[in-house]
C-alpha cells in the first residue's frame, strides 16, 4: 500500500505494471552466496599468506621414492606428483603465485580501463572515438597472440602473464565503465552540476565517480576470477610462471604429462582450485552488485 501511495504522488507516467526484467532473486539466497564466496576467498588468501608455516613440505622438494602417491596417502594427503613432490604443499604455495598475479593484474587493468573510460566519456567525440575504436580492436584480437609476443620480448615468466592479463582485461573494463559513464553523461545531473558551477574535475570525481565506482568494484572483483583462470592457462602453456616455482597453471601442465599414464589427480587438483577461486570471485561480484544498487534499498515512507 505504501508503494501505491508513493506512486500516486506522481512519479513518471510510465506503464506502472511493467514487469521487472529479471525475477529478483531472494535476498537471503544472495546473502548466503556472498557469505560463501567471502569465506572461500578469505580462507584461500589466508592459506596463501601463511604458506611457509602451514605447508607440510617444501613444494620443490622431490622425492624419487614416493612418486605418484594417490589421494589420502600416509603423510601426503593429496598425494605426490611425478617427482614425488607433495601436491598439497604445491597447491598452497601455488595459490600464492596465482592469486598474487591475478590480483595485481586485475587491479592494474581495472584502474587503467576505468581511467580510459572516464577520459573517453568526458572528452570530445573525436577523442572518445579514437579510444573506443582502439579498444574495439584490442577487444576482439586474440590475446594469446599478444601473450606470445610478450613472451618473445620479455622471456616467459609471471611478468608476461601480468602484462597479457592487463592487455586482455583492459578492453573489457574500459567498455563496461565507458557504457556506465556515457549513461551518466547523458543524464541531466551532469548539466545541472555544470549550470551550478562545477568544473570538469569536480564533475568527474565528485558527481560521476560515486555513480560508477560500485560498478567498477563489481566488475573488478569478477575480473579477478576470470584472470586466475586465464593466467593458469598461460602458465600451463609454458609462457607464464617457469618451473620449478609452484603455480596452479604450471601444475596443470605438469599433470598433463602424466595423464596418459592414467594419473589425473596431479592435473585435476590445481584445476579444481582455479575453478573454486574463480567461482568465488564471480559470486562475490554478483553479490556486491546487489549490495550497491541503491534502488533495492527500501524507500522511506
Amino acid at each position: 500500500m505504501a508503494l501505491l501511495e508513493r506512486e500516486a504522488d506522481g512519479a513518471t507516467p510510465v506503464r506502472p505494471a511493467q514487469a521487472p526484467r529479471r525475477r529478483p532473486r531472494s535476498r537471503r539466497r544472495r546473502n548466503t552466496q556472498v557469505t560463501i564466496a567471502v569465506v572461500i576467498i578469505a580462507v584461500l588468501v589466508l592459506v596463501a599468506l601463511l604458506a611457509p608455516w602451514i605447508a607440510p613440505y617444501d613444494p620443490l622438494q622431490a622425492d624419487g621414492a614416493n612418486k605418484y602417491l594417490p589421494l589420502g596417502s600416509d603423510g601426503h594427503l593429496l598425494g605426490t606428483d611425478d617427482q614425488g613432490r607433495d601436491i598439497l604443499s604445491r597447491l598452497i604455495w601455488g595459490g600464492r603465485t596465482s592469486l598474487l598475479v591475478a590480483f595485481i593484474a586485475s587491479f592494474a587493468a581495472t584502474v587503467i580501463g576505468s581511467a580510459l573510460a572516464l577520459v573517453a566519456g568526458f572528452s570530445g567525440d573525436k577523442m572518445a572515438g579514437l579510444i573506443m575504436r582502439t579498444i574495439d580492436v584490442m577487444f576482439a584480437f586474440p590475446v594469446i597472440i599478444i601473450a606470445v609476443v610478450f613472451a618473445l620480448v620479455f622471456d616467459p615468466g609471471a611478468f608476461v602473464v601480468i602484462l597479457s592479463i592487463i592487455f586482455a582485461a583492459v578492453p573489457y573494463v574500459t567498455r563496461v565503465v565507458f557504457t556506465e559513464v556515457k549513461q551518466q553523461r547523458g543524464r541531466e545531473y551532469i548539466e545541472a552540476a555544470e549550470s551550478l558551477g562545477a568544473g570538469l574535475p569536480s564533475i568527474l570525481f565528485r558527481e560521476v565517480l560515486p555513480n560508477v565506482v560500485s560498478q567498477i568494484v563489481v566488475y573488478g572483483t569478477g575480473l579477478v576470477g576470470g584472470m586466475i583462470v586465464f593466467s593458469s592457462s598461460l602458465s600451463a602453456l609454458g609462457i607464464g610462471v617457469q618451473p620449478p616455482t609452484a603455480d596452479w597453471g604450471r601444475m596443470i601442465s605438469e599433470g598433463a604429462k602424466v595423464i596418459i599414464s592414467g594419473n589425473i589427480y596431479v592435473a585435476l587438483l590445481p584445476g579444481l582450485a582455479v575453478l573454486l577461486v574463480a567461482l568465488a570471485f564471480n559470486w562475490l561480484g554478483d553479490g556486491l552488485r546487489d549490495v550497491f544498487d541503491p534502488h533495492q534499498r527500501k524507500a522511506r515512507p
Partner: peptide
C-alpha cells in the same frame, strides 16, 4: 554457464581427454 565460464581451457581439455579418450576410449587422445 557460470561454472563453464570459469574453467581453464587447458585444464578442461585435459579432463575431456581423461574421460572420453582414456577412461571411455570413445575418442582419440
Amino acid at each position: 554457464v557460470q561454472v563453464g565460464s570459469n574453467l581453464s581451457v587447458y585444464w578442461f581439455g585435459l579432463v575431456l581427454i581423461w574421460i572420453f579418450a582414456l577412461r571411455l576410449q570413445w575418442l582419440p587422445v
